[in-house]
Design a protein around this nucleic acid. Structure first.
Lengths: 332, 332
DNA sequence: TTGTACGCGTTATCAC
DNA sequence: GTGATAACGCGTACAA
């Protein structure tokens, strides 16, 4: 027998569909006897209401899309995890996609939104120039990503983070500092680079930024990092655009016989809970993910209920004081 | 104006709803002129088909639920990431939930399945005795988890992994080896413990297993690990039930002044890509996640199309040869 | 080659 | 208190 529907329950209980629906939703006036009757029929048949039919009528799915470049990286993993928990508490479930460098996949997810499958979307991907975003009245919130003027951005104080990291390295005597960042020009992550460049310039130092995108294979990342050392024999510090890069750089440096922090200083960015505990020696800029995700959910809800919001929300960063940026560490 | 529907497009193009539907789905015979006409109307109105209405008609959502204890841990992050990629290629999108120790949340997700919101479910959580699983004909696949006799399990060769790790530690001279595992008695992860215990017994050694569940806060995990050292002053090796435990144990040990591998040997379990690159020195048992997720998707599809499957699929493990289990490492 | 009419499972409206 | 009926937006026999 196929899954029972409302009508089957109604027939079984000897009432109308309306009555069953009322029992299901606690609406209207019903005699206790009827209620008991219907509930009995429901459990006897093992009936479960069909969510999809409800969604069609309500034009609301209680589903939120989350689109990230990857979810296996600790930063995005923690981001996704926090968002899911917070959205769940508000009654939403989450459709997640890692769009790994795949613009067509991102477009596909966007079409779902436009097709009323999700009530809202949180984007943290980095593909550019996707026409589908040029729609109206879409409840979207971006994390660390610029989409267009209408879509609010949640981010950490990337510029200040870049400044802080670079200053610390210079304070420790570093002169040949290399930075890693992503290729997407319109990402707020570029502000990390701007902070780095402005401090370098103020100190009359030449800066050099290498591109390491999120969604490339790890082996490729290691190759790129190795190349940095190859091309910069005098390198004495790295300000990595994220902690994964920083951690990989530590490994590559050690493979090449460089000792950290004596031969090479390293500072990362993100400061996820995982990295802080697995690699506590890594000095890094902490993004306040808890606050950022709280806000992302709030702003999304505001947009979904048609409220206006600000365009940009910048969160203060803090620093995790490890030892990878202190060459005198071993002397203590 | 509200979002346009099929009927609006039809009126705009001067044809019937059926014709528009045909154009949308490339079905039946249509004149090129009509096709162009309809497509023009579609783009002029900015029409997008309503997925929910389609789902109702087809009684299929192309949505798969994935239920994991957490997604911020690298193992589950990579698992979720791989599953999402592979399901996407087959035309499915993914609803993800981390059920962090919350049985009611797990039940809630199960009800979604029963409510026809998803076509299938992949479970890797560890909550027990959930009655909702006792349903019939649910397309479910479990990863590293025993649910009931009807639901197939995908797992690595946990027993052999436990044996292998313990033997290696004993070969290096360890005698006081502590193991960590989860509290869920019916998890296949217990086979890691059984492997460990059988080898310990065969060598006339006393084993001791500590419980560290996946979904407790990191600070709590660190406390539990610290307690292990407190209660076992003679400890000379740890076989951690997963790599996160292993990595944290390394940190706690170092904080207590223990040097690895000279004072303490460590072997982990999982061997995710991230940990292999961030902490390559950690010797660990590698689960073939790529194969396991391939199979999980295949088996789920088989179940969804009503085919019978085996009850258990065990994948061979390999070892990542780091240096944390080789006390003579520094002598080389 | 195109159109009509019905059904997917639920809830809202109005009547009794 | 309860029931009949329409409506949500789409796809598909069947007819033309």
């Amino acid at each position: 027998m196929p899954t029972p529907k409302l009508e089957d329950v109604a027939r079984h209980a000897g009432v109308s569909k309306t009555t069953v629906s009322r029992v299901l939703n606690n609406r209207g006036y019903l005699s206790q006897k009827t209620i008991d009757n219907v509930n009995l029929a429901i459990s006897e048949l093992g009936y479960h209401p069909n969510i999809v039919a409800r969604q069609l009528l309500k034009t609301k799915t209680n589903l939120i899309g989350i689109l990230l470049p990857t979810i296996s990286d600790p930063f995005f993993g923690e981001l996704a995890s926090l968002l899911e928990k917070k959205l769940y508490k508000k009654g939403y479930k989450v459709i997640i996609g890692n769009s790994t460098n795949d613009a067509s996949k991102e477009i596909d997810y966007l079409n779902q939104l436009l097709s009323k499958q999700v009530d809202g979307l949180i984007v943290g991907t980095h593909n550019q120039n996707i026409a589908e975003y040029r729609q109206q009245n879409l409840p979207i919130v971006a994390i660390d990503r610029i989409i267009n003027d209408d879509i609010p951005i949640i981010e950490s104080d990337n510029y200040k983070g870049g400044v802080l990291a670079t200053e610390r390295l210079i304070d420790q005597g570093a002169k040949n500092i290399v930075h890693t960042n992503v290729s997407q020009k319109e990402s707020p992550m570029q502000k990390r680079r701007l902070g780095y460049e402005s401090v370098m310039e103020a100190n009359n130092l030449d800066g050099k930024t290498y591109i390491i995108d999120f969604d490339i294979p790890i082996t490729k990342k290691l190759d790129l990092l190795d190349q940095i050392f190859e091309e910069n024999p005098n390198i004495d510090a790295i300000f990595a655009g994220n902690d994964t890069d920083a951690a990989f750089a530590m490994q590559v440096a050690q493979t090449r016989g460089l000792s950290i922090p004596n031969d090479l200083l390293i500072i990362g960015y993100d400061g996820t809970e995982l990295i802080r505990n697995v690699l506590p020696q890594l000095t890094t800029i902490i993004q306040p993910l808890d606050n950022m995700t709280d806000l992302a959910v709030d702003i999304l809800e505001a947009r979904m209920s048609g409220k206006q919001t600000k365009k940009e929300y910048i969160h203060p960063i803090t620093i995790w004081e490890g030892t990878t940026d202190k060459p005198d560490y071993n002397l203590n």
